[in-house]
């Protein structure tokens, strides 16, 4: 997959949807592509996170440790981003992500991501918007639940 295709991939992610294609290209170029085997762990619950993953090919399971043992709470597929909270603030991983098939992902490192945001404030605004939308969505869900 070439750089241009990767840019298309990033554009489909809401967080990056409104960012200029040339900046996305820089993000794609500076990010590493990583291959995982079926069963390889991308990261574990409780670890300090330092990068986000965009799935390019394959599927992955999101697994949460519960008192009754590990529980798969979600499945990730092409175009999904996972671990993005960890590159925005210093919180431990809230779940373990494990490749469910042969998997390829784009790895966006935290410091790299921040450097790009510092360089291009427009990116920060776009991400803020996306986060606000998410917050709003969560609020609505909570209100709907409580009502």
């Amino acid at each position: 997959m070439s750089l241009n295709e990767e840019v298309e991939l990033l554009r489909n992610i809401p967080m990056f949807a409104n960012i200029e294609p040339s900046k996305l290209k820089l993000l794609a170029f500076t990010s590493e592509r990583m291959a995982f085997k079926d069963g390889d762990v991308l990261f574990r619950q409780g670890e300090q996170g330092d990068s986000a993953y965009v799935i390019i090919v394959g599927e992955a399971d999101v697994i949460v440790d519960t008192p009754k043992g590990p529980l798969t709470v979600a499945k990730l597929k092409r175009n999904d981003i996972v671990g993005e909270i960890a590159i925005l603030c210093d919180v431990p991983r809230t779940a373990t992500v494990k490749a469910a098939t042969k998997l390829e992902a784009m790895v966006i490192a935290k410091d790299l991501f921040f450097r790009l945001i510092m360089e291009f404030p427009q990116m920060a605004v776009e991400i803020m918007r996306e986060l606000a939308r998410r917050l709003d969505a969560t609020n609505r869900k909570l209100t709907a639940k409580n009502a």
Partner: peptide, 13 residues
């Protein structure tokens, strides 16, 4: 040139 042209010269990138 396309990728790096907007970047400040001291940027580690």
């Amino acid at each position: 040139v396309e990728l790096f042209v907007g970047l400040a010269p001291g940027n580690q990138l």
